[in-house]
Each structure stands twice: as structure tokens, then as C-alpha cells.
């Protein structure tokens, strides 16, 4: 139930912060054009909460209703994470959608957004397949 509530807060927050509108997002990225700082304030609002509270939460030692904190095991800064960021950045710049807002925008029922989300899942699947093909030792 708390997972659902967290999701609802997340989706509502994205809508309130206008992040579900690719126009706003692309206008933020358009630094040489008519720049729109909305995304900066949304990010600031989110980090204003997570920056002080995450360390407090991890100091609990254990989450309230789970056995442990599931943190990423790989924390290396490598070519893989940079390559991923570059590919993601190009897609984000073209569409103005990153995964969260794309999912939130599913609520509009727009066929284009539905197809975008389907393509996102296909892209993730493809990356997983190639990963297993070329780096089988990672599994």
C-alpha cells in the first residue's frame, strides 16, 4: 500500500511540476533559447527532501517493512554508465520525456505516449539481450 501511495505522490508531483509536458522539459534543455527553469526547481524541490532525509533513513539500519536496503551493487564510474547516459541524453533531448514523466503521461491515453513507453521497454530489453551476449561474465 505504501508503494502505491509513493507512486501516486510521484505521479502527482510530476504533473504539478509540469514535467509531463515535453515542451517544458525541452525548453529547460534549450539553454541558448527561451530558457525555462521549471525542471531546475522540480529537481531542487526533490533534492531538498532527499538530500537531508536519505542519510537519516539509512541510519535506521533497516527499512520499516523490508529486510534490508537494496542499493546498487555496482558503484563504479565506467564507460558503460557514461555510454548509457549519452544514449539516454540523446533520446531525452529529442522527445522531452524521461521514464517517469512518460509513464505519468500514459494517463492522457495518447497513443504516441503509449508507443513511446512500449519502445522504452523494447530498448531496455535490447540492452539486456546485448549485455548477456557480450558480457556473459557479469551475470
Amino acid at each position: 500500500m505504501s508503494i502505491f501511495i509513493a507512486g501516486v505522490l510521484f505521479g502527482f508531483g510530476l504533473s504539478l511540476g509540469k514535467m509531463t509536458d515535453p515542451t517544458r522539459v525541452v525548453a529547460f534543455l534549450d539553454v541558448t533559447g527561451r530558457w525555462d527553469a521549471t525542471l531546475l526547481f522540480v529537481m531542487g524541490g526533490a533534492l531538498g527532501v532527499t538530500l537531508p532525509l536519505f542519510p537519516l533513513v539509512t541510519r535506521l539500519g533497516q527499512p520499516f517493512i523490508a529486510d534490508r536496503f537494496y542499493f546498487p551493487s555496482n558503484i563504479r564510474v565506467d564507460g558503460r554508465v557514461v555510454a548509457g547516459a549519452i544514449i539516454f541524453g540523446v533520446g531525452w533531448g529529442v522527445a522531452g520525456f524521461c521514464p517517469g514523466p512518460a509513464l505519468a503521461s500514459l494517463s492522457t491515453g495518447s497513443p504516441a505516449v503509449i508507443m513511446f513507453v512500449v519502445m522504452m521497454v523494447v530498448g531496455q530489453w535490447l540492452a539486456g539481450v546485448l549485455d548477456r551476449l557480450f558480457f556473459p561474465s557479469n551475470r
Binding site: 554508465v81 548509457g84 533520446g91 523494447v122 530498448g123
Partner: peptide, 11 residues
């Protein structure tokens, strides 16, 4: 772009 976003975020 959707394909790139999916691929890049997974990688």
C-alpha cells in the same frame, strides 16, 4: 527516442 531512452537507462 523511446528506444534510446530505454536502451541508455538500462545500460
Amino acid at each position: 527516442a523511446g528506444l534510446l531512452v530505454g536502451f541508455g537507462t538500462k545500460l
